[in-house]
Simulated scan of single mutants.
Amino acid sequence: MLQAKVVTVGKVKEKYLQEGIKEYSKRLSSYLRLDMIEVGDEPCPEKLSPAEEDQVRAKEGERILKALSPQDYVILLDLKGKELTSPGIADFMDDLALHGRSNIAWVIGGSLGVSDGVRERADFRWSFSKLTFPHQLMRVMLLEQVYRAMKISKGEPYHK
Rank of each mutant, 00 (worst) to 15 (best):
L2Q: 12
E52R: 13
E83Q: 14
P50N: 04
W126E: 05
M141A: 10
M150Q: 14
T132L: 03
L79D: 06
K82L: 12
C44Y: 07
Y24R: 10
L34I: 08
Q145S: 03
K130Y: 03
L2R: 14
P157A: 07
P50M: 06
I152A: 09
V146Y: 00
A105L: 06
G20E: 08
E14R: 15
S49V: 02
S25V: 03
D95M: 06
L143N: 00
G40T: 11
R57L: 10
S153W: 01
S129E: 08
V39R: 07
M138N: 00
E14L: 14
A67T: 11
K66F: 04
S49I: 01
F92R: 09
L68F: 03
G113T: 05
K154H: 15
G20D: 08
I108F: 09
I64M: 00
V146C: 00
S111Q: 10
G88L: 02
P50S: 05
G117N: 13
E144V: 02
L137S: 04
T85W: 07
L131G: 02
D78I: 03
A149L: 06
L96K: 04
G110H: 11
Y31Q: 02
K66T: 11
H159T: 05
P70S: 12
T85V: 05
G81S: 10
S29E: 14
V39G: 06
K47V: 07
G109F: 06
E156V: 04
D54V: 05
L98H: 13
K22N: 12
R119I: 00
D78R: 03
D35K: 15
A58W: 07
G109Q: 09
L2C: 01
K13R: 15
E46H: 12
E42V: 14
G100K: 11
N103M: 03
A149F: 07
